[in-house]
């Protein structure tokens, strides 16, 4: 049952988007979000949407995967657009009922707000769907490198993040196994009220914690046995280098941002 949780959002592939430098993709997401939040009108939204559709098409990620990822935010999208629909101020009244007034401006605000949220989430999916967790943390580490001057332990943070990501599937498997074993001894996890259910989790949590500590211990020993001593002087198997496609992507991203800002200036 726990296997159903999709945590590995990464869909391996070999398209241009997949091969882009992770740093490029992270920065592109930032630029994309900036453009999205500067968009005010139908036209500028259209420009951002075109950009998004283009990158989805190039990355060959199936639309069903994109839509599945949207499920958790459906509630937020519906709520915000509903609030916008009902409370946006405007003169062109379309309908009026009791204390609610729906205006043309309200409808526009509701649609654009929903579009903004959906496009925001889809844009970030483009990053996580096409970048392996290892590449993602490596990219983040390199981008945060300047923070080392401020004594931020950048390498350690990145290492912790990649190890956490690496261990999630292992822990899920382990939880599954322990739950089965306790069920074999007559434990029931789906009966009783909330407190009983929480109590029933104890026989799973204690062994799970113990095995996590044991695993962490073993991992630390294994790393030290292979001479790991922090990021100092450590080299990489695959060194990231910006390629032509990265510069092209940057150019496209900046063009998008510029276009949106210009459109806003023109009042579109």
């Amino acid at each position: 049952m726990l296997r159903d949780i999709t945590l590995g959002q990464f869909f391996p592939g070999s398209t241009v988007v997949h091969r882009l430098d992770p740093r490029t993709k992270i920065m592109m997401v930032v630029v994309y979000i900036a453009a999205l939040f500067n968009a005010k009108s139908w036209v500028s939204y259209g420009v951002v949407l075109a950009f998004l559709v283009f990158s989805i098409a190039v990355s060959r990620i199936r639309l069903s995967a994109m839509l599945r990822g949207l499920k958790p935010i459906v509630f937020i999208v519906v709520l915000t657009s509903l609030l916008n629909l009902l409370y946006a101020r405007g003169e062109d009244v379309i309908a009026h009922w009791w204390i609610f007034t729906i205006t043309r401006q309200g409808v526009k605000a509701a649609i654009l707000m929903a579009a903004r949220l959906i496009m925001l989430v889809m844009g970030t999916f483009m990053l996580t769907y096409t970048t392996s967790p290892i590449m993602l943390t490596y990219g983040l580490e390199l981008l945060m490198n300047p923070l080392k001057k401020l004594k931020v332990p950048v390498h350690e943070l990145a290492m912790m993040m990649s190890m956490a990501l690496r261990l999630i599937p292992t822990l899920i498997e382990e939880t599954d196994k322990i739950m089965s074993a306790q069920k074999a001894r007559g434990a029931e996890f789906d009966t009783g009220n909330l407190i009983e259910k929480a109590k029933a989790m104890l026989p799973v949590l204690v062994p799970l914690f113990l095995s996590s500590f044991r695993r962490a211990d073993e991992l630390a020993t294994a790393m030290e046995a292979r001479c790991y001593h922090g990021g100092e002087g450590r080299t990489r198997l695959n060194v990231l280098k910006f390629a032509r496609r990265d510069y092209l992507a940057f150019a496209a991203g900046l063009l998008l941002l510029a276009a949106v800002i210009v459109l806003a200036r023109l009042g579109l």
Binding site: I178, Q182, K183, A184, R185, G186, A187, P203, P207, S211
Partner: peptide, 30 residues
């Protein structure tokens, strides 16, 4: 579940109670 007892691989990793006695009693208590 109680008439067919199943011992998993490496069952020692499923111990969780404070005492050995309580842990052995988990099945019968259920």
């Amino acid at each position: 579940r109680s008439r067919v007892g199943l011992v998993f691989q490496y069952p020692e990793y499923q111990l969780f109670e404070e005492t050995v006695k309580k842990d052995i009693a988990f099945g019968p208590r259920n």
